[in-house]
Design a protein around this nucleic acid. Sequence first.
DNA 1: TAGATTGTTAATCGATTAACAATC
DNA 2: TAGATTGTTAATCGATTAACAATC
Lengths: 216, 216
Amino acid sequence: MKEHKKLPSAVIKRMPRYYRYLTTLQQMGISRISSRDLGNRMGVTASQVRHDFFSFGASGLQGYGYDVDLLRQEIRDIFGLDDLFSVIIIGAGNLGHALAKYSGFEKNGYKIAAIFDVKPEIIGERINDIEIIHLDKLQEYVQDNHVDIAALTVPEIRVLEVAKLVTDNGIKALWNFSPIELLASDDIVVENIQMIDSLMVLGYNLRTAEAKLNPN
Amino acid sequence: MKEHKKLPSAVIKRMPRYYRYLTTLQQMGISRISSRDLGNRMGVTASQVRHDFFSFGASGLQGYGYDVDLLRQEIRDIFGLDDLFSVIIIGAGNLGHALAKYSGFEKNGYKIAAIFDVKPEIIGERINDIEIIHLDKLQEYVQDNHVDIAALTVPEIRVLEVAKLVTDNGIKALWNFSPIELLASDDIVVENIQMIDSLMVLGYNLRTAEAKLNPN
DNA sequence: TAGATTGTTAATCGATTAACAATC
DNA sequence: TAGATTGTTAATCGATTAACAATC
């Protein structure tokens, strides 16, 4: 694998967006794209596109643009998408179900391997061919199966104990959907999906936009 | 309402976090907090806390700290949380169900008013006392009821047509959960929840952390 | 008063944009 | 060759951190 310098965090956060747009272009049968055209589609400047691609070792061609397939594959390499991360879901409620049923993860390099819950009546069921296993069997499971990431879709009051259980069993990445924010440590990486934060920003922007149209 | 200058977008995005931490402090019965203590809990510098609070007109007291209730209320004012935004959910799948069942939105100033879907067999059902209405009735509904925000939890292939339907009916804020990104316009504000982006960043950070522990 | 902590400006750092030579 | 577009540095802009006087 090619060595990459440590990328600025602003670039890392933008790369999944580039990846999504490149995937769409590929599906549309478009094989090359200029920084200007891509920037227009995404609502960013051409300069930023080139600067970002340069920062991870671009594969463009002067006077031509970027090769969509090649560039997309470079992002796949950087994010390790061809290595197929193994993800388990803790909590088989509606949100856990929604994640398990969504086929987009598998397509992009993340395999949902199992779902854990504690409700006896659903243990053994399958969602999208993924088995629901009792949380008591987690230790056993991680001994027999490699697990990269745990998605936490448990009720708010359970999330701290579940996070402890999961990390005590050697899992080093938490994808947390509860409104209780988990903090990363030296050893554990965390992504919090804080839906309420996003909703608050949306509401703020709505009020700001309305105030601009309708000053009083 | 107090007038606020236009806030830097970095500050706006951090404010929901402050708000969550202040709410937790309030629930713990803590009535005042220093920038240092709050920063430590959140993993940010005290300087940034003070700078941020200053930028929206802080309410601290030298030698004392910030009044938790007062500060929290100021954030509520800025985000309009006491005005109760009205939110409708389009798409009563698992994700729509999960949103409808989550009580945290209502508690924080966002009322889920109705859920729309097209599956005849679920029309009229109630989730968490919120009625499922046929999408054909949307126009009628928005004429009779004020709607601020539409949460889009429809299948990927439907999201563009649904976004058009919703905005054609005068709704100006879209909270989009599909992997098809919607772009904001002059008239329409958008928040995209791109779960796959968050997962990719998590996977990247996991690999980077592992590479640091285990260089080879 | 002495100690603590904010309010606020200045300094630094990082991210974005502009510019244009290089080159396909 | 002429036109297009990247690669790359420099300039600008915005965000973060440091510093310390003000003051509770």
